[in-house]
Amino acid sequence: MRQVTSALESHSPLQHGILHVTIVTLVIMFLIMVLVFVLLVAASLRYRQGRRPGEPDQNFGNTKLELAWTALPLLLLVCLFILTVIAMRESDPPVASASGADPPPDIVAVGHQFWWEFRYPAEGFVTANEMHIPAGRRLLLRIEGFDVIHDFWVPVLGRKMDAIPGQPNEMFFEASEPGEYGGTCAEFCGAEHAWMRILVIAQAENDFQLWIRQQQSLPPAPSEPEAERGAQIFRTTSCGVCHAVNGVSSGRLGPDLTHVASRQTLAAGRLVNNPVNLEAWIADPDKYKPGSFMPNAALSEPDLSALVRYLETLR
């Protein structure tokens, strides 16, 4: 799975400003570093012991010089501060509209231990770990923490934002062109913080609308007997307590599985989503993600493959 995760790339107008100020700042800092290094090396070479006899001239300081190297950095920092404020407005424009009313969010991202829930309130469906967005459209993203503090971060698309329980945050979110962009939870949130990855899939408007319609639809009822038996197992074991499949179960503690087979990864980026991995994951979640709350359902081999067969129909 190839993902672009570098903060030195920009695929969003919201990231342009950040990238710009990052490069300007890094160049300034690099130049200052070079200046200090050159001065130090020059001092070390020119004034090493033994070039002149006796103790050197004792120079107690020079107020003008010292004022100069106080004032110049100060001036530089004032410029940097102005750049900072401009870049802040550019890359994180205020969310409230001119009228002051809070517009409803397009997508709600909820951080859970240890996966991401993405709600599309207007379209009325929920998905997990993979967020589809229309390229070129500016969306309002609302970020919430379900249990502990998480942090929503997709580097190439702009700033990160904490997902805090009891204090939802909002920010704009946009990808300028279609593509797949990697991200992750960036605030330490417990045992499996490492596997709380985000995949943002930006699509052309038409593709996005297709995806929306697919997500809104109910998955087709399983037709072959093996899958049907799998559905039976899903309903009768505890799967549905945590996992929702529209029309079958409504658990909210784990990822929504209504269209699980259409997603690229399992367990928030831990595994590539294919039948073999899905089976291995359900058979022993602790092997892949020891801190996750997915229990080992202890299914028999035939039950397990039937269940996987069923889950593979959820497209």
């Binding site: 903060a7 950040i18 100020v21 750049l83």
Partner: peptide, 12 residues
């Protein structure tokens, strides 16, 4: 202190 940089690289 350049806040937008911090938005990218904090907690990394």
């Amino acid at each position: 202190a350049v806040v937008p940089i911090d938005w990218q690289v904090t907690d990394t």
